[in-house]
Simulated scan of single mutants.
Amino acid sequence: MLGKSLGGGVRALVQAAVIMLLALAIGVHLRIDPLSMAGVAFFVVLGAAVFSSFSLIIACIVKTRERFMGVGQVLTMPLFFASNAIYPTSLMPRALQIISQSNPLTYQVDALRRLLLPGFASAAGPGLILDAAVLALTLAVLVAVCARLYPDLAR
């Protein structure tokens, strides 16, 4: 399960590289020093592994491709909108702020902004260490759940 999840993370590196090249091509100012790029690679792989594990859990539960696609959209779109990917959490209603603070996507977005945007400093949390810890803990929990579900599916 961990290998499958990390494989999804490696595939996400190609997507991240394409997006960064397009951003540079249209004039977005990004930090592209080696340390930032190494951090971006780490967080892209870690975050994609989290969401690959999440997808594997959904696939183990619903067992058909059609259901997987429907349930996946029902679960992933609220995660996206309940994160800081579109607008700052400080502008959200309090209830949505609480949900956003428990959403792993919020921490991935925060880490990538810190690493790529010159002068970016998030108002919430102590930084990259918290972002990495939340994503790593989430990955560990999701891989454990998926490893528990998968043998039952294979029988």
Rank of each mutant, 00 (worst) to 15 (best):
L2Q: 08
K4Y: 14
K4S: 15
L6V: 07
G7W: 11
G7M: 07
G9V: 04
V10C: 05
R11P: 11
V14E: 04
V14S: 13
V14C: 11
V14M: 12
Q15R: 15
V18P: 07
V18F: 14
I19C: 12
M20G: 07
L22N: 14
L22K: 11
A23R: 11
L24P: 07
L24H: 10
I26T: 13
R31W: 00
I32K: 06
D33R: 01
L35W: 08
S36L: 00
S36K: 00
M37T: 08
M37I: 09
A38V: 08
A38L: 05
G39N: 02
G39V: 01
G39P: 09
V40S: 01
A41Q: 00
A41H: 00
V44L: 07
L46I: 11
G47L: 06
A48M: 12
A48I: 12
A49D: 13
A49Q: 09
F51S: 10
S52E: 12
F54D: 11
S55T: 15
S55F: 15
L56T: 05
I57N: 09
I57G: 11
I58L: 15
I58K: 12
A59E: 13
A59V: 10
A59L: 09
I61H: 06
V62S: 09
T64Y: 11
T64S: 14
R65W: 15
E66G: 13
E66I: 15
R67I: 12
F68A: 15
M69I: 15
G70W: 05
V71A: 15
V71H: 09
G72D: 00
Q73W: 14
Q73N: 13
V74D: 02
L75K: 10
L75N: 11
M77G: 05
A82K: 02
A82W: 06
N84E: 02
N84M: 07
P88Q: 04
L91I: 07
M92K: 05
P93H: 03
P93Y: 02
P93M: 00
R94E: 13
A95H: 08
A95V: 10
L96K: 05
Q97H: 05
I98T: 14
Q101P: 09
N103R: 05
N103C: 06
N103L: 01
N103A: 06
N103S: 09
P104Q: 02
L105N: 01
Y107R: 02
Y107L: 03
D110V: 12
A111P: 02
L112I: 12
R113H: 10
P118N: 11
P118T: 14
G119V: 03
F120D: 12
F120L: 12
A121L: 02
A121H: 06
A124P: 04
A124E: 03
A124D: 06
G125E: 01
G125W: 01
P126N: 04
G127D: 01
I129S: 02
D131P: 01
A133H: 00
V134N: 00
L135D: 01
T138D: 03
T138C: 04
A140Q: 10
L142N: 08
A144H: 03
V145N: 09
C146T: 14
C146P: 07
L149F: 11
Y150P: 05
Y150I: 05
Y150M: 08
P151Y: 02
P151A: 03
D152M: 15
L153Y: 14
A154E: 15
R155V: 13
R155N: 05
